[in-house]
Write a protein that binds this DNA or RNA. Sequence first.
RNA 1: GGAGAGGUGGCUGAGUGGCCGAAAGCGGCGGUCUUGAAAACCGUUGAGCUCGCAAGGGCUCCGGGGGUUCGAAUCCCUCCCUCUCCGCCA
Length: 423
Amino acid sequence: MIYINQLRNNIKQVAENLKQRGFELDVKTFEQLETERKTIQTKTEQLQAERNANAKAIGQAKTKGEDIQPLLEKVEHLGDELKVSEDKFRDIQEQLHQFLAAIPNVLDDSVPNGQSEEDNVEIRRWGEPTRFDFEPKDHVDLGERLGLMDFEMAAKLSGARFVVLYGALAKLQRALIQFMLDLHTMEHGYQEVYVPYLVNEASMFGTGQLPKFDNGFKLDFDPAYYLVPTAEVPVTNLVRDVILDVSDLPKKFVCHTACFRSESGSYGKDTRGMLRQHQFEKVEMVQIVKPEESEQILEGLTKNAETVLQKLKLSYRVVALCAGDIGFASAKTYDLEVWLPGQNRYREISSCSNFKDFQARRMKARFRDPKTGKIEYVHTLNGSGLAVGRTLIAIMENYQNKDGSIRIPEALQSYMGIETISV
RNA sequence: GGAGAGGUGGCUGAGUGGCCGAAAGCGGCGGUCUUGAAAACCGUUGAGCUCGCAAGGGCUCCGGGGGUUCGAAUCCCUCCCUCUCCGCCA
């Protein structure tokens, strides 16, 4: 959530910043709402003060045994007037809240200009695209030839955009989860956490999935549950409505969950294979940090995700998302893109973002600064470490042999107990 | 699913219509004492919104929402959550 004082004091600058990401800030509506709010709030609070003063006077008169009738007459009409005023005030506050809740995060100054994916800026590369002395297949051909990946069965069980994995491929996915969690907990200092896959509306709002981007799965309960689109939602919300002690920061969590996405609006996109599914596994890193540290921590978090790819010896590049491609809640995002021989290009496998205080304001996640004694909002960050399904794809495609068998990366061999998935 | 008991400040826990933003204790912070620390003692200590240059005002909040009343933590309705017992179950 944007800080309302930023709009009160610097609305022009904010509007310009948001315009870069293609968001048109409705300045006129805001100013109108604010003017109205001011008037009605002043009036409401005056009436409330009056009511309180009278109630007190009546109470005192009563204990003294005085006649309260004249006082009662005095406040006869106050109640109705106050109710009207309070209702109006509540209504205008709700309107303001909705207005603010729909505004995306202000972009960091370092975010490159641009409108789409095309304009993202490559920061660095690691490794070389894998070379083959044969024509490499994509993971669909490889998986089906192994008889261990079945999209038709998934369609029968569920529908499009699901997969069934058998045997060594199912185990490979499990090995990847294990490997990633071990790496982040044992070498990068994250605490592993297990969380619900169904969350409530407040949690979805807290991280910015609601109210604007309700493209997830809402379950028909009362109150509603949402299937988590990413572990970011439950894990970040661990600090919702909490005032943290400064000694608790930074908090570093790593969490494996299944993730559920409706993928509405992506019709016809990546329909082949398991690149874009309604359900996929992901290991997610989340950090809750002091504001002055978040910029640097984003770099570290990104490195943590890169380490997974490096240990798996998968070639990748890091891109800084441009203004037009960056997510609603993020101030700055790096994507990691892994080389996929089946597509002959780099594809997103991790997204690392600094949300600064945007999510923290929505969630009321704060800490007490011992120096000033003041309560401040924390900064939140997260990054995939990594998207497991896509890592599985990357391994299959990059480690394939001519005969369709797949070598197991060294780092995973102890988890798999084999060196090759044979045809 | 059935029966019951509860949800109050960082925590424990009083409070059944006005003197309650809320006793007391713990914890935190500051101080006295001490070479230092502990103990003891004294003081202090919720959050948010808003008006104001400031000093300082005002308002809201006792799980959420609604109601009764001049006045609600306290009474009524409703929803949510937690705990205990029974049933069922991984």
